[in-house]
Structure formats: structure tokens, C-alpha cells
Design a protein around this nucleic acid. Structure first.
Lengths: 207, 207, 207, 207
DNA sequence: CATGAATGAGCGTTCATTCAT
DNA sequence: TATGAATGAACGCTCATTCAT
């Protein structure tokens, strides 16, 4: 249990330090100090500096993927599935703002191991979006002229970018619901003004 | 003129090397070798390693900003302005794939100078999007319930993410027009199936 | 008694590990694992890493010195004394091949404590050789033009070197008797061919 | 030429430092200070710490091997060949006392690369001795009952051991000639007193 | 006595930067 | 201007040693 604690403490500390200074600028001693352990202790739990970063990804994102996957299994409606996906992601990012930074910055590194993680475990997570879109197209809810893979990238790119609003000093007042709503509104209906009566009505009724 | 050449050669080489290895993993000697100059020569044109990265941003992105700004001045229609913005950005990224990588990865660094650039010059570039959206809302073309700043982030996040399709080995076949079209379709009209009678009915039933 | 066991187990394990990896490359944890005790346990029996090495010398070589000394006390003939010295040393080295390695490698270290051991206890052991030579010269059996100290070094250098034949994968077939014989033949009579009658006769009579 | 100098300076400094402190206890900064260069400079000429040690062996011993080999080519008499071998070795060791220490201590390391060197280049050097002995046996000058490989080890072990007399504070007064003479006398004729007339005569005639 | 998790001093090595040529 | 050899500060990591259990 004690060991369990140290491992977790180091992960949390590393996430914080990586977020603040970036992986390369972060020193092992920074992480150790933040975790209140000796430098050497870190090497009892991790093989090297990169292993810490990978563990942050695997464990922290792993938890998000797991929860999101579980919630999505109970939902059939593609629109609602996107709502769940986005809100879960934003919720997690708001709760763990450091992780949001780390995902944005470090997950893109052209490092071999990071790339490998991105191309396997993480791509499963983003791949979910494409699946939802395909499902929506199959049930004729979503436009058939949208390319699922491309739209998934658009969606995740947007989601990833807005997930950092809570790290910005200016925009912290947003609620998860608010951001999810804006993202989904744009993604589902677009920014064009709903011009005709039926649209206006429908729109009102959905809000 | 010769100096001019060296400066440009180093910028090009640095962009390539940064894209491939990342800023921190890239060595000055890598850039020097790529630019076919001596290590020391780099310091005749740049103050330090970060200065090279900043120059890449300022000059390469500066050129894009300039051109985009110029083209946008000749356009009044908000929809068309977004088309121009997106297609210009994607065109530039397709032409200079290394730059696309560098923007995605290095521009997010929590480094003081990078942050400063991001918060000043670069935020003017992304700020253009918010302006266009406001303009569209003023002329009642865009929905009034969209928050310009948030929507701008969504838009840029999506644009930034898809701008790397040409770096992916699998998706290089997309044309700029195609990607712009997908992005704009989603952003302007959403992924929901276009609403003619039969659809409206079905759609209502699913909501 | 149990403690006695642990002490001895650690000495044996350390000798093995030092022989295989060398003193500096050997880790305390290697020795602990080999001795099947915990790392910390080693420090209940030894002050530090160097103390283990010194103990290996003092105890293992001490035993050899003791036995050799005892046997030599019962012998008067200088030639036979050299035979005893060499055969005892080789016998011990063949029995404990790890110790042979450790003596060859680690006893030469320019470390203060090792040096001290080498200059006191161990030099008594090699000093025996010089004493035997002097005795042989006194009784006119050995040539008077031989310098005892130098000859002792020659003898021990040769003995030390050949004592490792059993660690070499190629030469393990030698018997202790065989090696002793070769060493003594050379040392006592030299490699020159015994050309004339008297030599041949004398040689036979000494065997 | 300047580079040539640095390389040589580092080799000399490293030999000195290795001799004094031993390979493992020696610090790169010790060598750098001794060579009057910066720590980093060492890595312009050598790949790592072990590479320095191997270079010491290859270059310094290489020179000795070369010279000895050259001199031996001009000699036919086995006895004289041994004289040349021993005197050349001792001469080199007296000139470069640090090298004598390094050979004695570090060449025996159970390190993979060192072992490789010992088993190839260096074993050629010691192998020369066995060749000389075989030659002496073929021409009936040396006893036929001596095993060349074993005798070579005896010879080199003795030579190696006495080669350090000049490092000992007590025995520095010996001349190379004196030590060579003692070694060869013992090795060729043994320590036994030359007892009868014919021996005395033969001995004189060979000198 | 025994354990092994925790410590932190210490070193090999890298690489941005300088400067004599 | 251009070079690239030289510099030395800085850091990841190891491992002998300690000590709470």
C-alpha cells in the first residue's frame, strides 16, 4: 500500500511538473521534490524519465478511456454518444488540468515510444469518434458526405483545443456543460444561422 | 545576399530538423549539417537555439499571416472568409509539412518566449477567426448563440489537427479542397443530415 | 552458529561475484543475491564493500598461509620447501578458482587498504619464498648470485600466473603435480637442455 | 597536429591517472585535469572511459610489441631472443612506469572488451615466448620436457611481476640489465648451484 | 538478527555556446 | 564572414549505505 502510494504520488507530481515545464525542461529532481521523495526513489518505480511520461499516459488516460468506453456502451443514440464522449473528456481535463497540458504538448512528441502509444492505445480512444460517426451515418442521422476519419480528427482537434480553457487564466469561468454544448452545437448543426421556421422551432425545443 | 541565403537556409534546415526530432532532441549540429554550414555559423544569424525556433515561427508563420490577411481584406462574406482562412492555412501546411509538425508540437511549449509569441503575434492569427465569426453574427449569417472566442478555438483546433493529414503516411491522398470542404461543411452546417421533409420527420423522432 | 554461517556464505558469494564481475562492477545486491540474504544483512557482518574484499583476502588467503607455513615447518630441504609452497598454492587455487581470479585482479588494486594488506600480511606470504632461497644459498644448494628478493618475485609472479590455468577454458586438463613440476623444473634447473652425463644423473637422483 | 597532440596528451594523462587510482576510481575529470583539457574535450578523441583504457593498451603496448617483434626478427638464437624479449619489455616498463602498473592491474579486468584485447592482440605478444621456446626445443638447446605454453606463462608472469620493481619505492635502484640477467639466469639455468666442473665450464662458454 | 525500501552523493556524458584562426 | 575544436555547466541515473519495521 505504501508502495502503491509512492507510485501514484510520483505520477501526480510528474504530471504537474511536465505540465508546467514540459518534459525536457522538467528535471527528475523537480519531480522528486514535488513528490517529496528522493531522486533515486523514482527509479524504484520507473525505468527512466520517458517511462514516467508513458506511465502518465497509460494510467491517467487509460482511466479516462475506460470510463468513457463504459458509459458509451449504455448509449445507442450517436448524438448522445458524442455528448458523452466530449463531456467526459472535458470533465476529466477540467479535473486534471495538468493532464490536459501534458496530452496537448507531450503526446505529440516525435519520440518512438510516444508515437507507439499514440498509434495503439490512444488511437483506439480517438477511433471511437469515427465509429460513432459511422454509426450515425448508418442510421441516417448524420450526413453521408462526411468522411468519418477526417471528421473524427476535426472533432478531437476541437475538443483537445478547448479542453485547455481551464488552464488559461482568462477563461476559467466556463462550465463543462457550456463548452460541451458549444462544441456539439457547432459539430452537429454548424454555425450557420438556422434561417427558417422549422429550424428555429426545433432548435428551441432541443435546448 | 549570401547572408540572406544562409539565414533562410538555416531556417529551412531547422524547420526540417525540429519537425523530425523535436526541438529538444534536435542538436545544433544537426541543423548545421542539414543547412550545410558550420555549427558556429548559426550563431552569426541567431542568438541561440530558441531564437531559431522563434524565427521559424515569426518568419514562416508571419508569411502565412500576411498572405491570409491580404486575401481576407478583399472578401466580405463571412462564410467565404472562413473558406479562405482554412484553405490558405491548409495550403501552407501541405506545402511545408515540416512547419505543420513544428506548429503542432513546438508552438505549445510552456517556454516563456514561445508563450509570448503565442500570446501576441500568433493570437492575432487565431483571433482573426473570432473576428470573422463576430462579423457573421452581426450580419445574422451565423447563429447568435455561438461564443466567438470558443468557436474560434474549436475551429483552429480542428484546422490544426487536420493540417497534419499530409504528414501521416496513410492519408496523404487528400486534396486541400477536400479537407477544407469537410471542415467547412461541418463547421458551418454540422454533421446532422440536411433537413428536408422526410429527414425532419425522422430526425425529430430521434430527438 | 547461524551467524557464522551467514558470514561464511557472504564471503563465498563475494569471492564468486568479485571473480566474475570484478570488485567495482560487482554490486552489493549481486553478492546478497548470491548469498541468499538481504542487502542490509551484509552490513551486519561487514562494514562496507571494501571490508568484504579485505575479509576475503584475510580469511581465505589466511587459511592458505597458515597451512603452508605449518607444512613448511616440517621440512628442511630448500628444494622440497619450494615444492611444498608451489603445490600448496596451486592446490588451493585449483580448489577455489574464484579466489585465484580475485587474487590476480583485486589484490593489485591501488587502494590504500588493499595496499596495506598487500604490504603486511600478504608480503609475509611471498616473503617466505625469499627466506627459502636464502636458506638454499646458505646451504650452498642454490646459486649465490641470485638475489633472493628478486628471485622471490620471479617465483611468485610465475606461480600466480600459472595458478589461473584452471580458469582458462582451454587448459583445465593440467594436474597440480604437473604444473608444480614444470614450475620447479624451470626454476631450479632452467630450460637449457641438460647436455652432459653428470647433469642427467643428477637430475634423476633428484626426482 | 594539434589534434594529434591532444590525443597523445590524453593517453599519457590517462595512463598516469589509471596507474595511480585504478580505472574505476579514476574520474574523467582527473584525466582532463592531468591532460590540461576540459572534460568534454576527452570525448572528442575517445568514445567513453573504456575506450581510453583500450587505446592505452592498443597504442602503448602496440608500440612495444612492434619494436620487440622487429628486433626479434634479426635474431636466431633462442637464448638471445629471450634476452631481447625480456630486456625490451623491462626497458619499456622502466621508461613508462605508469604503463607497467596499468598492464598489471587493468589488463586483467573481467571486462568484455578488455578480455577481447587480451585474447587477441596481447596474446600475440605473450605467444611470442612460446614460439621462442619451441624453436629452442627444435634446435635441442632447450629441454624437451618443458611445455612451451606453460613455460611461456611462467616466463611472462615472472617478467610482469618484476617489471614493477621500479614502481616500488624500495627497489628502484635495479638496472634493466641486472633484472634481465636475474630473470634469464633463473629461467635458463635455474637456481641450483652449478656444482661440478663441466657445468662451470659450459656456463662460462655460453656467456 | 533480518529485511529491503528509501536515500542522495557522485560521476559519465552531452551539447549549446564561444572564440582563435 | 565562416569555421569547428574546445569548453564546462548541467543532468539522468546508479548503487553503497541506512534504518524503520
Amino acid at each position: 500500500m505504501k508502495a502503491e502510494n509512492k507510485h501514484a504520488k510520483i505520477i501526480v507530481a510528474a504530471t504537474k511538473v511536465f505540465a508546467k515545464k514540459g518534459f525536457f525542461t522538467a528535471r527528475i529532481s523537480d519531480i522528486a521534490k514535488e513528490a517529496k521523495v528522493a531522486d533515486g526513489t523514482i527509479y524504484l518505480y520507473f525505468n527512466n524519465k520517458y517511462d514516467i511520461l508513458l506511465s502518465v499516459f497509460q494510467e491517467e488516460i487509460g482511466r479516462i478511456i475506460e470510463k468513457t468506453t463504459r458509459l458509451l456502451e449504455q448509449e445507442e443514440d450517436p448524438e448522445q454518444m458524442l455528448v458523452i464522449y466530449a463531456s467526459q473528456h472535458l470533465l476529466a481535463m477540467k479535473k486534471n488540468r495538468h493532464l490536459a497540458e501534458v496530452i496537448q504538448i507531450e503526446l505529440r512528441q516525435p519520440n518512438k515510444l510516444i508515437k507507439e502509444y499514440r498509434d495503439t492505445a490512444f488511437s483506439k480512444y480517438t477511433g471511437i469518434i469515427a465509429e460513432i460517426i459511422k454509426k450515425g451515418q448508418a442510421s441516417k442521422v448524420f450526413r453521408p458526405d462526411i468522411k468519418p476519419a477526417l471528421a473524427a480528427r476535426l472533432f478531437f482537434g476541437a475538443l483537445d483545443e478547448v479542453s485547455r480553457v481551464w488552464n488559461s487564466s482568462l477563461e476559467t469561468h466556463y462550465s463543462v456543460h457550456e463548452v460541451t454544448d458549444q462544441l456539439l452545437t457547432v459539430f452537429l448543426r454548424g454555425v450557420f444561422h438556422p434561417v427558417d421556421e422549422p429550424q428555429l422551432l426545433r432548435k428551441k425545443s432541443t435546448e
